[in-house]
């Protein structure tokens, strides 16, 4: 099931005309701090809800967040 979802997400990444040609943006400094706190698991439930909405509007920022989590993983 996991492999199937990976295929579908990669298909959307490749063929979504809204994604194609869109420049990858970096989150602002305030957002970066929130995402770092999210990565460390220190956001409140309300802050988590806000950040989910924000990440949903800016899907490219999930890559930034994932990188942050992986850096934490590497440091452990």
């Amino acid at each position: 099931m996991a492999e199937r979802l990976q295929i579908l997400l990669k298909f959307l990444e490749r063929f979504d005309d809204e994604v194609q040609g869109r420049e990858l943006s970096e989150p602002g400094e305030d957002t970066k701090i929130k995402l770092q706190r999210f990565a460390r698991g220190t956001l409140t439930d309300e802050e988590q809800t806000e950040i989910f909405i924000l990440l949903d509007r800016h899907p490219d920022w999930t890559a930034w967040l994932a990188k942050e989590v992986k850096q934490l993983r590497a440091g452990q």
Binding site: D56, P59, T62, A66
Partner: peptide, 23 residues
């Protein structure tokens, strides 16, 4: 939105479910 974001994090960016638990 939570589902869309978590699915991307786990299946596109390959975070483990354990990492999601911690977050």
């Amino acid at each position: 939105p939570e589902a869309r974001v978590l699915l991307r994090l786990v299946y596109l960016h390959e975070l483990s479910q354990r990492e999601i638990v911690q977050m």
